[in-house]
Nucleic acid binder design. Sequence first.
RNA 1: GCCCGCUUGGCGGAAUCGGUAGACGCAAGGGACUUAAAAUCCCUCGGCUGUAAGGCUGUGCCGGUUCGAGUCCGGCAGCGGGCACCA
Length: 882
Amino acid sequence: MSRYNPKEAEQKWQARWEAEQVFLAVADASREKYYVLEMFPYPSGRIHMGHVRNYTMGDIVARYKRARGFNVLHPMGWDAFGMPAENAARERGVHPAIWTHENIATMRGQLKAMGLSIDWSRELATCDVEYYGHEQQMFLDFMEQGLVYRKEASVNWDPVDETVLANEQVIDGRGWRSGAPVEQRQLTQWFFRITAYAEDLLQSLDTLERWPEKVRLMQSNWIGRSEGMRIRFTLSGEQAAAMPGDGRLEVYTTRHDTLFGMSFCAISADHPIALALAADDPAIAEFCRQCRDLGGTAEVLERVEKLGLDTRLKVRHPFIAGREAPVFIANFVLMAYGAGAIFGCPAHDQRDLDFARKYGLEVLPVVAPADTLSIDIVNEAYTDNLNGRLINSDFLNGLTIAQAKAQIAGRLTAAGAGEQAVNFRLRDWGVSRQRYWGCPIPVIHCADCGVVPVPRSQLPVVLPTDVSFDRPGNPLAHHPDWKHAPCPRCAKPALRETDTFDTFVDSSWYFARFCSPRAATPVDRREADYWMPVDQYIGGVEHAILHLLYSRFFTRAMKATGYAVEKEPFSGLFTQGMVTHETYRDAGGAWLFPEQIVKGEGGVVHRETGAPVQVGKIESMSKSKRNVVDPEHIIAHYGADTARWFVVSDTPPERDIEWTESGVEGAWRFTQRMWRLVEDSLAKLPPPKDPARVSGFKAAGIPAVLADVPEITDDAALALRKATHETIRNITSDIERFHFNRAVARIYALANHIAAFSAQPAADAGAGYALREALETLVILTGPFMPHLAEACWEALGHKIMLVNVEWPAVDDTLTRVESRTIIIQVNGKRRGELNIPHTMTPTQDYLKAQALAHDAVIRHLDGRKPKTVIVVPDRIVNVVV
RNA sequence: GCCCGCUUGGCGGAAUCGGUAGACGCAAGGGACUUAAAAUCCCUCGGCUGUAAGGCUGUGCCGGUUCGAGUCCGGCAGCGGGCACCA
């Protein structure tokens, strides 16, 4: 008996798959396609367990779908632009391109060692000009379609690193790298007009039936549609006529029903009126500056007091003659949302109430709970916007909130003072980054002609390689000559745009590029029309909003520019959980790696010093806490199959999984156990039959491997066959529904059953067939999870063709249709016994009832009482009710 | 603050429709084999009770619907996630 050697077997089968180009995907209109994609990795240096989990899941789906006869596309690439490469350049003097490509080479090798069924001929990296050049072309197309524009926007600016920071890179108001206080700066930036599709992006969420409900909800909240009114108030006061807006102030509200409770208006510090006032008044200018410097981080806003400055402007109430309300500039009003101005009704909005209390403004309740008709407002606003009746509101009194809204909308619209409006929280996507390692934005700035797109004949705009990182800021801007280019329109000297794209742009269309990664155009329509959309996309939930929303925008924009037919990129989505591990610290509080500790009799101690170790929380693996396990070590020690098996065992894929040494040992034991099971059974098996035809993309329509089993009458053999076919049915549905942990459990259960059967002496010749059928089924069903081991077992079972080319087994319904033979007997819903029904009979309800009433335990529990009724659930239960 | 999700043995988790709660794995304990170890195999394993057969109890807590509730409904608690001055 030989021991299974994963190292040899994995190399052997990976080489054979590659030699026969099994995973090469070729579009074929005669075959049904299936596009499986995992979120492509950032080439940070080495793969981590999160990658192992992600790519194992994708590979299970890809191999399974392939076995089901689909023409599977399963590609891999690299999200290769981004800041870590520039940081490496600054810290270690390595050029970002070299750093990135070395990382890619390392990680490609690590992924290949996992035995993934990937078509590596389609590999791409977003930092290669063959990729980002096409991105530049699409940018120009989007520009022509009006989907791109430039505007001045406020950004987080790190004055030391001289760069823009994303909100996540601002920690406690300081730059995450430099530690310098972050400033708000107005910069002219490029934007994608994602809001043009706000309604469609929201509505179409309903069509994404194979997306997690949670992700759809998060996107829906992010888009943040609200229905309300734009209302234009007439300004009064000395300066009213001089203000922008023709003497009117427009606000957006969702509570126009509370208009009679208005006691002030407030505008943003960036509102045109505020800017106009600030121009003449240093005090106002100073106040506006303070408001802006607050910035946008949520934690700061939480603590900050509501502040306002009276502009001395007033607005007239549209329905109360002679009544006016003051206009404030307020720090809590955002220019980017709605009209950048609000009307304040303190009784029914908490912020307005806080503000009113601070500045001594009137608080007039205008909505009361339906049954009370009056309400006192102290420190808490009454914000119920569904139930309630209007009070203190003239012609609205007594109406419901909905009726009052309709009245107000009707009157204001008729008067030309407003109209109903839909508003979105979603904002346009700013894509400019002042960085080197990204896709150059293909425009030229000319003093005379303005912003001029780079002519298509001059694309791609290639990143220069001779850049230096010896000073802060964007190396492209410092480059001696790269940015100098003649204006394409007037030929005078002009300047290239030195900003590059946000890396989310690169990852917003790579899935489409995979369909034709070497095409001379961004996408080859014939290929894309065949392969798109992605049938199953798999990745971390941390991308639930931005990446997925941007990609959904991009496919719409690509459709508008003729690059795509589908507007939704991913018809199925699965978001997997993280990989976690215990944390360890020494007495000094320093984090320790798992391999530095030993768990023994005396508790947990340091491997070398023997000093006691504190075991901390189970947290997601991170380098900073050192609770990481390197997949390469695991694969070297146990093999890829064991690692793959472990990361889908026990825990449902959407939940976080804890990596434990004993869990991996358990997975390792099973690989050996399965191999032994096959070897030990070989002597009892009839000869193998290779299937007549081969599945995969070279042939369609495949026969089942397991046909022609002779008739079997032995009970144990029949039970094995039944278990075999039930396992096929269950694992098939488990994989379809991403219940990999259940599929794993069922594989264990079938293996246990086979082991028990195999240990008994064979009843007759048929037993060998049942055993071969069960073993081969076990091997095929294990294939998507542990492909190398399964190939080895398949070969050991005597087959000449590779398992990867064998079709998924079919369920024999005649075997599984036989219902349960054990019927549970209950008294008052509690289990009291069971009935065993012989194979040969089909019991009637009356028979079951009689059997139950005659049962010892039932008689004991009835204790002489007459049953009121007896409920019989066919094939399951008899419940005697007293 | 608003929105969403989760809560089952020592642990990860099973339990399509309301119908045998705890599959499968890990850990633990006992035993076999072995000079020994590794590996492997067998047994036990929610709690209480009983020599045993068995009995009682048990899916976060309180209540309801039902012949029957981990599953459905109402309330509460705890944990986790998303958004957050969004008018």
